[in-house]
């Protein structure tokens, strides 16, 4: 009896164990690359304020820049989240994916604004995505702002 139950749920168990490790490894690598890029782009500031540059003197060029990223929630975290949502409380397991998607989107936005002195009026929007099976399986984040080029440092 116990054996039968074990065999029946073995694929689920294997999937949980495997995705636990793959999720952790991928997360760590992603954060490593995010931190590296953030360091690289730390000179290019971005702000959610837009009014300050209105009329801006010395602005030679300005254009819209965007960045987007889709980050998935691996099976393990999704499963834990499913149980968690029944009992309530802070769902920490989804926060990592959200955070990574947002930061990656901002970094890609900065990447497309090479040479700019600042990015102003940055807005971020995200949508949960679901595909394959109808469940929450990831998050897409899109960040956009106005890259401002000045001949003098702000």
């Amino acid at each position: 009896m116990l054996e039968q139950v074990l065999i029946q749920y073995l694929p689920l168990l294997i999937l949980l164990v495997v995705t636990f490790f793959t999720g952790r490894i991928i997360e760590r690598r992603h954060y490593k690359s995010i931190l590296k890029w953030e360091e690289e782009f730390s000179r290019l500031r971005h702000t959610s304020i837009g009014r300050r540059v209105n009329g801006g003197a010395g602005v030679t060029e300005s254009r819209l820049v965007c960045g987007e990223a889709v980050v998935s929630v691996e099976f393990f975290r999704w499963f834990v989240g499913l149980l968690h949502s029944m009992f309530g409380g802070a769902m920490r397991e989804y926060e990592s994916s959200l955070d990574r998607a947002r930061r990656e989107a901002i970094l890609r936005m900065k990447q497309s604004a090479a040479g700019a002195s600042a990015i102003v009026n940055v807005r971020i929007e995200h949508t949960p995505i679901s595909y394959g099976m109808s469940r929450f399986s990831g998050v897409e984040a899109i960040a956009w702002g106005t890259a401002v080029y000045k001949d003098t440092e702000i």
Binding site: V18, T19, T22, H30, E68, V70, S72, E74, F75, R77
Partner: peptide, 15 residues
């Protein structure tokens, strides 16, 4: 998506 990480195919779609 089952294993986690960024979905580049969908990042491109949104782009």
């Amino acid at each position: 998506g089952i294993f986690g990480g960024e979905l580049r195919g969908y990042s491109k779609l949104i782009s």
